[in-house]
Write a protein that binds this DNA or RNA. Structure first.
Lengths: 353, 353
DNA sequence: TTTAGCACTCGATCAACTAGAGTGCTAACT
DNA sequence: AGTTAGCACTCTAGTTGATCGAGTGCTAAA
């Protein structure tokens, strides 16, 4: 049975009010604040209906109603109005995120920090999944005998590097030869195609004793693989303590314990977005988040792009009664800013893919 | 008036018990647990004395006593016994920190994470202050036209890099020439000596039109300066929520708000260790920490070395009633492990200074 | 100087009570 | 049939008062 217009109106008003006050909302305060042209008794009847239909919950018999997960879901899916960001706030975001040229890491860090600061909730940014991006350069720079900086450059301009150890009697020339061989052998191959075997095959042109080769190959391989490591940037976790839903120490601890294992969050986010053709944004509410300690939270995420198919995520976590519409417009704006920045970086490089 | 032997004994016992229980300790439980050969009444008299002398406090009239900051200070300075780490725990630390070769960043990250996990408190690691270290290499690697990876290698083997933009019509050869000129001009100079002027002077040998030069020089300069940026690694903040002193939401929030501004902690730590000839470790108790939200905490820090004069810090923050002696031995062990690792890295490079 | 004994204080706990907010239901009204 | 006024009912939060017990401070004796 679908919700009739008045029920929708009332549900929306309840969610709106609860988001604002964090207090169960009563029939009387509803008619008072919004001018429905009916009495509180009528609203009460409607609220009772909404409760039996599962959209509302009552903390105890004589309290107002609060939205259930289903109620929030309905609100988010069809009731709320998302308005574009005010020019001032857009400006503030732009200022925070794009005030200087940055590579991807810095960009994500700033995006995350801006999101946390402007939403007042906590934010996440995940580095892109690079499995499908391909190698464009591999350089090995001798730092000292026995120590090299391995620089991996991927399509879409992402650069990763790592310090590695190699046999210290390997000369700079030999190293140069090896890394050139690897590079030309692997250039254009995607990360998921590259295995220790491909690396070894690629290097067969180099005229270096195998004994010397092995460690270098292994380190090159490791560096390439490591370029795909998922990194998480988190910000604004402290904000969570200011919400009444986490005033109680136990729930706060549950949340922070889960957050501290950042692999968990990253893995979850990664998995959730991987399995779905992502729309512009994705919302998970309360119990929909299958992570301990996050059942009183909601999670809004979106996907940014680096090149054609390579994508990462940014997201905001707040209490279930977070200001969905505002956060959605904020996160969308940030996503667009990131995409734009990444495109700009690419365009500057003469549009090389 | 100095403390006589029995008073010291009692104070020590009180601090020990309070560290364990977080409850005010009573005269009766004292004589019960430790076998002083006097009655509880006598102990009570001594406790009253200790209170008037400022070593103890009474939350309310009919409660036991808890140590004051002064009491902790006395305990830390002359009462507690620091015992070396158990072999098992030493092993566990070594395993966590040194299980693979790592550059400094990774080492600090691991050290911080191990400290947090093993102490059960929260940990900090600060990257070394590199002002006095000197440049040994500066390489610029062309990633794409207009985009370079600037690699700065400092004495003691520290490597930092950064992506920068340069005019995109600059050729790889020109870039190579410029960076070589800068490198040979600045090699052996300490970071604090290097200014935009020195960089410019260093590059005067390169035969490149000045218009092209400027941006490259500026980016080189920025990269070098940025190598000295203080980085903070924090871990185990979630542990703090499990201590009764932070069960109250307000104090937890105070703490986390301060922690979230990581510049503050870094700055404080930096300042505090800078002004003093650091002994093996340094302890700040309660009000001695001049940071909002940390008045119920204690802060144990120590200094690790990278080369001769270059040093950074690691530290542990816990409630005032933290297990000082254990943390001291833990933190000392980690310090030694870091020093050892750094020395090893150096030795491997043939002892170059 | 130590100690047993006792009076005193204060927090924590519990029950009883109250006030108030908010509902659900009923019966009247349009 | 939908709406509404009115009222009884329920439940929480807050208050009060009493009790319990832990722990102290003091006194007087050993």
């Amino acid at each position: 049975m679908p919700l009739d217009f008045r029920k929708k109106q009332i549900l929306q008003a309840i969610v709106d009010d609860y988001i604002e006050s964090a207090e169960p909302v009563a029939s009387k305060s509803l008619v008072c604040k919004h001018d429905f042209h009916v009495s509180s008794a009528t609203v009460r009847n409607e609220m009772a209906d909404l409760e039996t239909m599962g959209y509302l919950e009552q903390p105890h018999t004589s309290a107002g109603r609060i939205p259930s997960d289903k109620g929030y879901r309905e609100y988010v899916d069809s009731l709320m109005r998302v308005e574009p960001l005010s020019p001032e706030e857009s400006l503030e975001f732009s200022r925070r995120i794009t005030d200087s040229f940055e590579e991807l890491t810095g960009l994500l860090r700033k995006a995350s920090s801006a999101l946390a600061a402007q939403t007042g909730y906590m934010s996440l940014a995940l580095s892109p999944r690079l499995r499908r991006s391909y190698l464009t350069q591999l350089k090995m720079l001798m730092i000292e005998p026995g120590k090299v900086l391995v620089v991996v450059v991927l399509s879409a301009g992402v650069v990763k590097d790592r310090i590695a150890r190699i046999p210290d009697y390997l000369s700079a020339d030999q190293l140069f030869e090896i890394s050139n061989a690897i590079e030309s052998g692997l250039c254009g191959k995607s990360l998921e195609e590259i295995t220790l075997v491909t690396v070894t095959t690629a290097a067969k042109d180099a005229h270096i004793p195998e004994m010397l080769l092995n460690q270098v190959l292994y380190e090159a391989y490791t560096s390439i693989k490591q370029a795909d490591n998922l990194e998480v940037y988190m910000d604004g976790t402290n904000h969570m303590l200011s919400f009444p839903e986490f005033h109680d120490n136990k729930s706060a601890r549950g949340l922070f314990d889960t957050l501290s294992k950042d692999g968990i969050i990253a893995g979850y986010l990664n998995e959730v977005t991987d399995n779905s053709i992502t729309p512009s944004y994705m919302i998970r509410i309360g119990q929909e988040i299958q992570l301990e300690g996050l059942h009183d939270c909601s999670f809004i995420t979106t996907t940014y792009n680096v090149g054609d198919k390579i994508a990462g995520n940014i997201g905001v976590i707040g209490p279930k009664r977070m200001d969905y519409s505002k956060v959605i417009s904020q996160i969308s704006f940030v996503r667009n800013t990131i995409n734009q920045q990444m495109r700009k970086l690419k365009d500057i490089n003469g549009g090389m893919e």
